[in-house]
Design a binder for these strands. Structure first.
Lengths: 156, 156
DNA sequence: CGGAATCGTTAGCATGGGTAATGAGTTATG
DNA sequence: CATAACTCATTACCCATGCTAACGATTCCG
């Protein structure tokens, strides 16, 4: 393989932290890319829109536009716009904040919740099928690896 | 934690393929998100632009606009546009195809190559630092997990 | 009470996703 | 050889979303 020839040191450097870092970064990026491609063909929402639904679902609570913007690492005007689209499609509901007249809170509609769940289930189903093709030993390794990966991702 | 209370079954279902799939998906998505945030502050290229540089770097060859579009899963007009920007910033060079007068080939400039390398090194350095905080046992697990994750990501 | 801070929104610009259309080049066929 | 069909990149248009600047309304604080 020409790729192997271009990067012959990759196999060796996997024994150092730097080498493992490079290998892990590639694996994670690639798997995420593949997961991202498992979209439901009928789901026409964009990635930022699905991202908002995902944040609301994970938080299991209504959030202000500012909180959503912070969670998704965008500026509030961008989030306003994305939420506008989601309100139009009926996936979220906007309402005034209970105590602060400046704020607006956004929450999942039933439709939006169903959409997140369907999207996740589709990805999980694909991944579960791929996992089935592994050996029990390989699966055991991934079982131990998943929480470590999660830990790596946490804010440092 | 309210999250733990909302999803109490997650800990249990990690013993099934479906449960591992959900846990792994979350870990991978979160780590990738964290990796994506490790951008060099001076790098003003967008994610699609960096994606094109990444494809060219990994391929270690010049590609046509169509090939780039396919690699990045976009339509050719979108790729034309992205390449236009990259040509302006001097990160890629466009030239006519050697034998097919319809085609254009795009290749990394020295500047573009340096940019990809710097971007990767920054992410790898961050990840290597996080890896250093793990135990040797945890690192060994990840060493065994990385190629398995890579295998999962491959086209099925 | 007045000024400063906070919040969400609007406006403008740039990028990039799509589709439709186009012109140029290449290939296949009669 | 001429023509039709196919391929390729590009342009045009629309839409979504990233940013910054600006604004009006609300809240906080001295």
């Amino acid at each position: 393989m020409s790729y192997a020839n271009e990067m012959p040191t990759l196999q060796k450097v996997a024994r150092t932290d730097a080498g493992l870092a490079a290998e892990l970064r590639l694996s994670v990026m690639r798997l995420r890319r593949r997961l991202a491609s498992e979209r439901h063909p009928d789901n026409e929402l964009s990635i930022p829109q699905m991202g908002v639904l995902g944040v609301l679902y994970r938080t299991a609570d209504a959030l202000t536009v500012g909180e959503l913007a912070a969670a998704e690492r965008v500026q509030p005007p961008s989030m306003t716009r994305t939420v506008n689209c989601l309100e139009e499609t009926g996936d979220v509901v906007r309402r005034p904040h209970e105590t602060d007249g400046r704020q607006v809170v956004v929450e999942l509609s039933d439709q939006g919740r169903a959409r997140v769940i369907a999207d996740r289930e589709r990805r999980d189903a694909w991944l579960a099928r791929r996992l089935k093709e592994l050996t029990p030993d390989e699966r055991a390794i991934l079982r131990r690896a998943a929480p470590i990966l999660e830990h790596l991702a946490q804010r440092d």
